[in-house]
């Protein structure tokens, strides 16, 4: 039971990094970055590539992945956002989809379509903690993601750059009229968002492998997390991501946790990944109908 919980928490915290980046860009430029899922995939392959060059654990590769991905995020802003910034937000949807497709094909050309694995953060294998056996990688993912989520909070709430990032997200023209170079701030937001997606890629690419077409799945997860959590809400994105992962991992494992369920007719059909995905989308629809502002939906003003 606890083992399953640790696994879903690990998956959820990686999703949380991805969803966080998605929300930061959403708030900064009021546009959806559909390349966010492909940035996770790119981060996975960057980790794979560094892993081939340097035989070191993933945690050592993490800073390198963050830097490379931040540069990719900066480039994404330059090609997919700035040329279109005075166009309707839908233009940015399309340009980021285009960048996502380019990343996919680039990864395919460089690494091929076979699943690849990045090195584990510290070490593979299992560890016994107070009587339960859990995977080392899952614990490491949770720890790294927690540190990164805390770092994002401190950066945004406690630093001068964070104040400028939030002010720009809330009223760009006013921020500029107060002397803030909003284009730099927006470029920094893209860099941070891509770095966080890339970190998620590194975290996931050991347990779940990485293939060039992974992005579509991840962007859907981010999108659902943000809708469930509340469009534009940063804590909502984190909670939404954790809920999704909990659901994805817990539902197929229910018969293990509650042995009585396994005897039910159709149990293997009901408690499966497929049904979990279907129910997840149904849950999304229910949220959209019943509580369109999401769990953390508040007045628009509070969104940053």
């Amino acid at each position: 039971m606890l083992q399953v919980l640790v696994n879903s928490l690990a998956l959820g915290s990686a999703y949380a990094l991805l969803a966080l980046g998605f929300v930061l860009i959403l708030n900064a430029v009021n546009a959806v970055n559909f390349a966010q899922g492909d940035l996770v995939m790119a981060g996975g392959f960057v980790a794979v590539a560094f892993g081939m060059l340097l035989p070191v654990p993933g945690i050592v590769l993490l800073p390198l992945v963050l830097v490379v991905m931040a540069l990719i995020g900066r480039a994404l802003a330059a090609v997919a956002y700035f040329p279109l910034k005075s166009r309707p937000p839908v233009s940015v949807f399309i340009s980021t989809i285009a960048v996502g497709i380019i990343l996919q094909n680039l990864a395919n050309a460089l690494f091929g379509a076979e699943p690849r694995a990045a090195p584990p953060l510290f070490a593979g294998g299992l560890v016994e903690l107070g009587g339960i056996v859990v995977s080392r990688q899952a614990l490491a993912i949770i720890a790294v993601a927690a540190v990164m989520i805390a770092a994002q909070y401190v950066l945004f709430q406690r630093t001068a750059l964070g104040r400028r990032l939030r002010a720009t997200a809330q009223d760009r023209e006013m921020a500029e009229a107060l002397g803030i170079r909003v284009n730099h701030v927006i470029a920094a937001t893209f860099a941070i968002a891509a770095a966080y997606a890339g970190a998620a890629g590194l975290l996931l690419a050991n347990t779940f492998f990485v293939t060039p077409t992974d992005g579509g799945n991840y962007i859907l997860k981010a999108y659902i997390a943000v809708v469930i959590g509340g469009w534009g809400s940063v804590p909502g994105a984190v909670v939404g991501a954790l809920l999704i992962a909990l659901f994805e991992v817990m539902l197929p494992s229910l018969p293990l946790i509650v042995p009585g369920l396994a005897g039910l007719p159709g149990a293997s059909w009901l408690f499966s990944q497929t049904i979990a995905t279907i129910l997840l989308y149904l849950m999304l629809l229910v949220v959209l109908v019943v509580r369109p502002q999401g769990l953390f939906g508040e007045a628009v003003q509070r969104r940053a």
């Binding site: 001068a160 104040r163 002010a167 809330q170 006013m174 921020a175 009229a177 107060l178 003003q301 940053a304």
Partner: peptide
Amino acid sequence: RARRGLGYCPEGRRVFPGLTVEENLNVA
């Protein structure tokens, strides 16, 4: 222009709603 010495206080105030009073002041 702001850095050259123009202080702008717009119609409708446009304080940053999600920043505290102190953050609103510090950001500028």
